[in-house]
Design a binder for these strands. Structure first.
Lengths: 344, 344
DNA sequence: CATTGCTGTGTAAGCGTTTACGCATCTATT
DNA sequence: AATAGATGCGTAAACGCTTACACAGCAATG
């Protein structure tokens, strides 16, 4: 059923129906009410493409995610997508998915979408090399907006950026460990040069002294590597009384190793990890870890994008999402310590 | 840039450009080549909404997933989505996401999409009560198709159905266990009445005898419950030499418990699970489990949908995806047995 | 050489909306 | 009572594509 047919049937013109739908323009409240009610009854829904064509906006945004098929990134992605969806549906926008870094011949799908006006804007996540060249042009000439998640922004107008700042959570880790009295703290990371280690060192320094080099290992990504990291770490004497593990996945292996060496978590060794993947609440004991709120990351990104699209207040083009420690059951004071949770 | 402007600039009519783009209608090869080349150069891309309006098809399908926010379903979903995307992009279709069971006021988003022609068809996954009433109408009067994943299909025209058949994988479990010589097999499930248990019983029966009631426990969903299940199971004498655990997540806990009871996997006890979540390859030892190919499930669904949409061969409206055992390192012959892998 | 049939291209009428504009009515002002 | 401004509604021209139809050119046929 087209709007013309429908309008005729209920005895008004298509313009009136349109005005009723959008609540804009001059229309009497009674007529509007009547039209809306009959729409409901007769089940008329305007054609979306005709609307988009006339409005020159599609109320649809694209999500380009560089889909590494790694074990973990998927989990992050889905949380992120959930956040995006939440906000989007509140504003009755739609989401078009950009399949895993796919390109149509010669040009990226995102570019094609932008030029064919399939989407009004886009969120790009985890793509380290955003193609600034064509984005520049696109963004300049048309009403196209982008917000980049989790990667340093090329500073342009109409290109926003929301980044993840891990320092808050790391500070909380340092705070907890130091205040409990841990002075031998180990670090199991995946690769050298990780900024998280620097943050941790800085925060530890402030409070109870930094981590010595021999308590630091870089081992890779899987639980097995985590176990291996724990073994090498615990060869040292004195052994660490607490260990920070860069990811939950590593921590799963590390905890297994620690137990196999005959230590009890958290009585003999405290473990504190990072990411808060779903499984973290089910380890034995449940893992104390730093939660990264990917859902919030997604929400912030969309909110920024929508603000840009709808030209509301002059938005800040950059925003930050922080992390926070969630305490479960793998951290306790070191054994020799009398239980003084706070030393203030 | 509109098609008119572009056509004028390169000295032809809009009709010619359109014919060049679609390669349909009467157009000389030379002209076509020329037009395509200049499109490339000048960066002209036709407006998608105008196209959809004119074609009365959007080349977009919707994905409605009933998003339980459970730990696991997300993993399945993302694999499924990946499969869907793969096929879709091959055919240059787009995917519109239906946020977690969201409804616009009064009507489901899916219905709204269908009526507003936002999507040509849809894939509905994991929604136990597909609203047959309106689907019926929609499907009848218009060219709208649906394929339902993983739930019994309401048999209608234009409504396909791809289901998951777990029996193959379960048969392989029984085959492996029996052929290795296991005769005391335990079962840790999550809820009573699970058809998987029935399948397993049937398959065991065929080969080396079914599982006695005292070797069957139903415990719930989390690793902790899995551990608990293992403890209760191993109170029996004689204890099971192998145990089938309904999900990997349960198995993680069960394996922990088994180890804590002093048994070695797989020397003393074989463990075999179901689902093959990503973490299954990282357990210690790596978990032998039944793989559910959700990606394939997604692919099949899309392929069926596209066939329906494009009215190709009279497709079968029902299809099945099977599971298969992936052997890793948690299964071995029972201790007392001489190593006879096959007793044929 | 007139006719036929085929090919390549342009013209214009859709596709289903939105919205600027104009025209009645209707109330409030002189 | 005549005029001005509001108000509610319909008409028609976009929006940017596709495609049926018409038409000119051209080769093949009688």
């Amino acid at each position: 059923m087209t709007i013309e047919e429908f309008a005729r049937k209920i005895g008004v013109s298509s313009a009136t129906v349109s005005r009723a739908i959008h609540g804009r323009g001059r229309i009497s409240p009674q007529t509007r009410q009547m039209v809306l009610q009959r729409m409901e009854e007769m089940g008329f829904t305007p054609n979306l493409h005709a609307q988009s064509l006339a409005h020159r906006r599609s109320r649809t945004i694209g999500l380009e995610y560089l889909g590494q098929t790694e074990v973990l990134s998927d989990m992050f992605l889905i949380a992120l997508a959930r956040g995006i969806q939440r906000v989007l549906t509140e504003h009755s926008y739609n989401l078009l998915l950009n399949p895993v870094g796919v390109t149509t011949e010669k040009e990226s799908l995102l570019r094609r979408w932008a030029r064919s006006r399939a989407v009004d804007g886009a969120i790009v996540v985890g793509n380290p090399d955003v193609p600034v060249q064509w984005l520049q042009k696109l963004v300049a000439q048309k009403a196209f907006c982008v917000v980049i998640v989790h990667h340093p922004p090329p500073p342009m107008a109409n290109v926003g950026c929301v980044t993840l700042d891990l320092s808050r959570g790391i500070a909380q880790v340092a705070e907890l460990l130091c205040s409990l009295g841990h002075r031998q703290v180990g670090y199991i990371g995946s690769i050298p040069g990780d900024p998280v280690l620097d943050m941790l060192q800085a925060e530890m320094e402030k409070r109870c002294g930094s981590i010595p080099a021999e308590y630091i290992v870089h081992v890779g990504e899987t639980p097995d590597r985590g176990a291996q990291g724990a073994y090498t770490l615990f060869r040292h004497n004195p052994r660490p009384t607490a260990v920070f593990v860069r990811t939950d996945v590593l921590a799963i292996g590390a905890m297994r190793a620690i137990r196999e060496m005959g230590f009890c978590i958290p009585r003999d060794v405290s473990v504190i990890a990072h990411d808060d993947v779903p499984l973290a609440q089910f380890t034995d004991p449940p893992l104390t870890t730093v939660r990264v709120d990917y859902e919030q990351l997604g929400k912030s990104a969309v909110e920024m994008l929508l603000a840009m699209l709808e030209r509301r207040e002059p938005v800040s083009l950059s925003q930050t999402v922080h992390t926070s420690l969630v305490q479960r059951a793998t951290v306790a004071p070191p054994l020799h310590h009398t239980l003084s949770l706070r030393e203030d």
